[in-house]
């Protein structure tokens, strides 16, 4: 029997999602910042528009500031806050080093909050931290029972963002195979997900409801 409670499983899943969100969004913000500088000053507006958020800024620095700290639930700091919160809750199930790296990144953001101006170099350095977090997971020698939940969250988030932002069905389908494999690993009752619908909304709903629909049994 796998000794992970429903609450812990859910926390691990969300931790995976938030770390992935942190990574993808960080890369996106860096990429978009570049574009705003000399290609298209509206690039930031377009990006967040895809997520249903209205963003305004008068210069690239402000774009950076807002997307890192000020967009409430969509900000980068929010993603890492949530990842860290879930890490604290599941700490007894995580490798020590993994927790330390997540917490270190969280503290890095907390310190940066106090600084009026954040640079793009700073943001790039956080990518190293994120790499270290995933690295720890891959190399972890601790019982594998937690990893499928984290991975499930990671892939579900990646699929969501790929479809929502890049409109890349190809990337999503590639991940879909992985997701289905994981699902089967987690529960014999797993119903394979297929993405045949053309409606983006419907696909996103399916992906985001998958965990609750098939992995967790109402107790």
């Amino acid at each position: 029997m796998i000794l992970i409670s429903p609450q812990t499983a859910e926390n691990l899943y969300w931790m995976g999602r938030y770390i992935q969100r942190s990574e993808t969004m960080t890369r996106l913000v860096i990429h978009t910042f570049d574009k705003i500088l000399d290609i298209d000053p509206e690039e930031g507006v377009k990006l967040y528009d895809k997520m249903g958020i209205e963003l305004t800024y008068s210069n690239p620095q402000e774009f950076l500031q807002k997307s890192i700290f000020d967009l409430e639930y969509a900000s980068l700091i929010c993603a890492i806050d949530n990842a860290r919160e879930n890490a604290i809750l599941t700490r007894s199930h995580l490798p020590n080093r993994m927790f330390s790296r997540i917490n270190a990144l969280y503290l890095k953001y907390q310190n940066a909050k106090l600084n009026p101006l954040v640079s793009i170099f700073w943001l790039e350095s956080t990518l190293q931290e994120l790499d270290a977090i995933w690295g720890n997971l891959e190399l972890s020698l601790v019982e594998a029972k937690e990893i499928p939940f984290i991975e499930f969250g990671r892939i579900a988030e990646r699929m969501d963002l790929n479809i929502r932002i890049y409109n890349s069905m190809e990337a999503a389908l590639y991940d879909l195979e992985k997701l289905n494999l994981l699902g089967h690993k987690l529960t014999p009752h797993y119903k394979k997900l297929s993405l045949t619908s053309t409606s983006v909304e419907k696909m996103l709903t399916k992906i985001n409801g998958l965990y609750y629909g098939t992995i967790v049994t109402a107790s």
Binding site: L3, S5, P6, T8, V216, S219
Partner: peptide, 29 residues
């Protein structure tokens, strides 16, 4: 919990059935 190998649980994670105590696991077992 981590160092001793015991499972960390909140009240919500535990349930009494007949006269024994159980930890709920994610798949219903």
């Amino acid at each position: 919990a981590k160092q001793s190998g015991a499972i960390l649980a909140t009240g919500e994670d535990l349930v009494v059935e007949k006269d024994h105590l159980y930890l709920k696991t994610y798949n219903g077992k």
